[in-house]
Design a binder for these strands. Structure first.
Length: 877
RNA sequence: GGGCGCAUAGCUCAGUUGGUUCAGAGCACUUGGUUUACACCCAAGGGGUCGGGGGUUCGAAUCCCUCUGCGCCCA
């Protein structure tokens, strides 16, 4: 007998993580085994662990630990992302606090600050993942700006440029005036805002007439280069071919006609500002209009804004409205609800702006990626429903703006040698660039100092889209042993919010560079929300502190809590109660172990029949659950796999098996039973290990002294054997009998410690092997088979078997009969509906044979049961 | 404005090809139970016209139409 104390999760968790690290179990090297690879979605280098990370890294750890147990060479590659916009914004903000403006620094100085920041905070989130139990191969940790990673990004840029897929375009882009950078469409959020609709009057040249235009942005009148009307609009027919005068700046602009104008909206007249609106740009192109950009980089007005020069766009808007009013040009203003594009990062209102940018042509690149997911199932999305979203995006894809006006990131490897738009070459190094530039210009005297590298950096996603390849150096060195072994990877676990940003692009890059998928399965988790369904966010302050949660509920508890309600692709309503449930489960397992250790083992006593049968039953039960779990995993239904394991251990192992084999108080247990139970407990631990790595490893070593080679983390998944289904069915029947006894005990207030006797009319011809179990769990002193009813006994039925419990004193016959009659009525009704179906010729001929047979069986069962009940009623009356 | 999805017990959700996994799970709730692993426990129990309406079918939570409410993505 061993004394086992209470479970102290914190000490245990630290101890085992250290042990795992010391013995290098997480590290993977190329060998003969089949690989199983996951690359982590690299969190932002300056980020801290939040609930979303916890969820998706728990899932990855479950998958990787299970693969390890299944004998695969499991490799989970961790890393961080340089997250150019987010990180640069943070660095700029910190410098500002120190009184330093980014504009006052050189690029080199600024990058030095950024690297300092990265080194200071970069490891934090990875350390937090360790607390969660993440078994990443830390020796392989990568950072998207590592020199080896960056060269691959540059290589791919040059390659795509040389293939003619990257071009420089003057395009309308989303300009973030605060971060002073371009954003991709995906980084712009549209938020509803109550604004004003201004009705501005323009004079018609050489006449007294005016026309009125509705606009939400009066400050852009300085950029107006035309007025547009619908050619079919009768109201404005008289204006055709005339010219209008822009108020304040008094520029004369043409009145053009285009069916694009919506006659119904506003006044039916549209002012055209090609520099500051996508649709206006389109009109401008069609009608060859002048383009006047009126803004500086920070969205203050430039010299075209005349006396508003230097003023912010929103300040200018108010003041211009006031001036227009003074001039009598402002007819009225109306309240107007519109959707305003804002920066995902800085929340600044986006300014549509024309600028020179680098673009990647997507049309041909997406083709293999569409085929792989939607036609060939080469890459499978879980859950499937995301295929529709994927299809929609991929078939409507636009060219990707890959340049950002930032310093933190890979600098675009384009080198300018002159002032012309086409005066550049693209090369991996400045030396190569010089060679190319000399060739292109036929100017042999060019020097590298004559070259100016494009100051812009590449979009962060342009480096992370290579991630599954670049972490294995696959672009620098495509024939290397590791890349060939680990790639394609197996599973990718990430949130659906970056299906386009990241997942789709990795698939595109994978096919472009290797002709192969980057991963086989994509598991899309849901978003973690709070109980009120709100997204977890810093500003709402509704995101619990991840490390605090681990401290309160243990890492195992939090892992279980998160997984319990996390079906793939479904948002997860986070509730601390779930973690409590996880912790409760740890406690349950711990106490089950504590119980087994409290017994004295006696090798001389023989095994009770009830223990023998119960152990056989649990063996089958575990095997059956194993099949179920396997099926859940194969469909990436991780929470179902957990729930199946949870019920196996809690209900079947603790609730039934341990209760059956438990020796009487202070009596010893026979050795055979003890050994079998421990062996089965070990199988439980193997199954639970991926979900609860710490507790299971602790118990694994508490059971026996084990060498490092024998640690649970590198042990094996339970071996599969045969399932005795007849045994399972018989047990189920016995469980119903026990439940019947318990119900009667409760109804009649018969305490468990009072033994009772039980008789049965065994119409069902049930095997008596479980009688010993029924006797033990029902506290039955005597159990006998009878051929006819027992007088003065309480009864219950399981199928057509009738059970009798004689009790002292008289039973309330009237009430018993009433109960029986109710049961009879219900069964008769059930029989009637079954027979109704069977009488229906269309059902019998139309339904599959199996369904019809089933109905016949139901009919027979019901008839037998009715007979049993009727006999009982007769006996009582 | 376009696209995708959801609505099942008080809550969070399963329910795969229409029929024994068909009305289910976990939690919560009610009642009873503690000298004998665990009250973070055990047992028993209540609770849903599967969002409304219509249709297809021998048969619908499941397929189709429509209405209502909600969520997400994109313009």
């Amino acid at each position: 007998m061993t004394q086992v104390g209470a479970y102290n999760a914190q000490d245990v968790e630290d101890k085992w993580y250290q042990y795992w690290m010391e013995h290098n179990y997480f590290h993977s090297e190329v060998d003969d085994r089949e690989p199983y690879t996951i690359v982590i979605p690299p969190p932002n280098v300056t980020g801290i662990l939040h609930m979303g990370h916890m969820l998706n890294n728990t899932i990855q750890d479950v998958l990787i630990r299970r693969a390890r147990l299944k004998g695969f060479n499991a490799c989970w590659v961790p890393g961080t992302d340089h997250a150019s916009i987010a990180t640069e914004a943070k660095v700029v903000a910190r410098l500002k606090e120190q009184g330093i403006q980014k504009a006052d620094l050189t690029r080199e100085q600024f990058l030095k600050h950024s690297w300092d920041w990265t080194q200071q905070y970069g490891g934090v989130i990875l350390d937090q993942l360790k607390k969660l139990g993440a078994s990443c191969d830390w020796e392989r940790t990568k950072f998207t700006l590592d020199p080896g990673m960056s060269t691959q990004v540059i290589k791919s840029f040059v390659d795509l440029y040389n293939k003619g897929l990257i071009y420089r375009g003057y395009r309308m882009v989303n300009w973030d005036p605060e971060a002073k950078t371009t954003l991709s469409d995906e980084e712009v959020n549209f938020v509803e805002q109550q604004g004003d609709l201004f009705y501005i009057s323009y004079k018609i040249q050489h006449s007294d007439q005016t026309l009125t235009i509705a606009t939400t942005r009066p400050e852009t009148i300085f950029g107006d280069t035309a007025i547009c009307i619908n050619p079919d609009d009768e109201r404005f027919a008289h204006l055709k071919g005339k010219k209008a005068i822009v108020p304040i700046c008094n520029r004369v602009i043409p009145i053009i006609e285009d069916p694009y104008v919506d006659i119904e909206f506003g006044t039916g007249c549209l002012k055209v500002t090609p520099a500051h609106d996508e649709n206006d740009k389109m009109l401008g192109d069609t009608h060859k209009l002048e383009v006047i950009d009126i803004f500086n980089d920070d969205a203050s007005l430039n010299s075209f804004g005349l006396h508003y020069q230097g003023k912010d766009r929103f300040v200018a808007r108010k003041e211009i409205a006031a001036e227009l009013k003074e001039l009598g040009a402002l007819i009225k203003t109306e309240q107007h609800l519109n959707k305003v594009g804002t920066s995902e990062r800085t929340k600044a209102v986006i300014e549509p702006r024309l600028s020179d940018q680098w673009f990647l042509k997507m049309e041909d690149l997406v083709k293999p990626a569409i085929k792989a997911v939607l036609e060939q199932d080469d890459v499978v999305l879980h859950p499937k429903k995301f295929e529709n979203t994927y299809r929609h995006w991929m078939t409507n894809i636009r060219d990707w703006n890959i340049s950002r006006q930032l310093w933190w990131g890979q600098q675009i490897p384009a080198y300018f040698y002159g002032d012309g738009k086409e005066d550049f070459v693209v090369a991996e190094t400045i030396e190569d660039a010089l060679v190319l530039a000399k060739e292109k210009t036929s100017n042999a005297s060019l020097k590298s100092t004559d070259l100016r590298q494009d100051p812009d950096a590449l979009d962060t996603w342009f480096s992370s889209w290579l991630w599954p390849m670049s972490v294995f150096d696959g672009l620098n060195n495509p024939d290397n042993k590791e890349f060939n072994y680990y790639y394609p990877t197996n599973d990718l676990v990430t949130g659906p919010d970056i299906l386009f940003f990241w997942v789709a692009r990795m698939i595109i890059a994978g096919y472009e560079y290797t002709g192969k998928k980057p991963f086989k399965n994509v598991y899309l988790t849901g978003l973690v929300r709070d109980k009120q369904r709100r997204k977890m966010s810093k500003s709402l302050g509704n995101s619990p502190d991840a490390l605090q949660l681990i401290q309160t509920y243990s890492a195992d508890g939090v892992r279980v809590g998160l997984l319990l309600s996390a079906a793939a692709g479904n948002d997860l309503m986070f509730d601390e109660g779930l973690c409590q449930q996880g912790k409760g489960f740890s406690n349950k397992i711990w106490n089950a172990f504590k119980l087994t250790q409290s017994w004295d083992i006696d090798a001389t006593i023989s095994q009770p029949e009830s223990s023998k049968i119960a152990i056989n039953w649990y063996q089958s039960c575990l095997q059956q659950t194993l099949v179920e779990i396997e099926d859940h995993y194969s469909k990436y239904r991780i929470s179902d796999a957990l729930m199946a394991s949870y019920k196996l251990v809690w209900d079947d192992f603790c609730g039934w098996l341990l209760e059956i084999i438990k020796p009487p108080y202070q009596a010893p247990i026979d050795k055979k039973t003890y050994d079998s139970v421990i062996a089965l407990f070990e199988d439980n631990l193997r199954i639970l290990h991926p979900f609860m790595p710490f507790l299971t490893e602790e118990l694994w070593h508490a059971i026996a002294n084990r060498t490092p080679q024998e640690a649970l983390i590198v042990n094996h998944w339970p071996k599969t054997t045969t399932i005795d289904t007849a045994l399972l069915t018989d047990f189920e029947f016995a469980a119903e009998v026990i439940s019947g006894i318990r119900t009667i005990r409760k109804e009649k207030n018969i305490a468990f410690k009072d033994a009772i006797s039980l008789s049965v009319i065994n119409t069902e011809k049930i095997d008596d092997q479980f009688d010993v179990v029924i006797k033990k769990l029902g506290n039955i002193s005597e159990m006998s088979s009878v051929s006819s009813g027992v007088e003065g006994a309480l009864t219950f039925r399981v199928k057509s078997n009738e059970y009798f419990i004689p009790i002292e004193g008289t039973i309330d016959v009237k009430q018993e009969i009433l109960k029986l009659k109710e049961e009879l009525q219900y069964t008769q009704g059930f029989l009637k509906s079954v027979q109704g179906k069977l009488k229906n010729q269309k059902f019998v001929s139309g339904a599959p044979q199996q369904v019809v047979d089933n109905e016949r069986k139901k009919e027979a069962d019901a008839i037998a049961k009715i007979e049993t009940i009727e006999t009982s009623i007769k006996n009582l009356s």
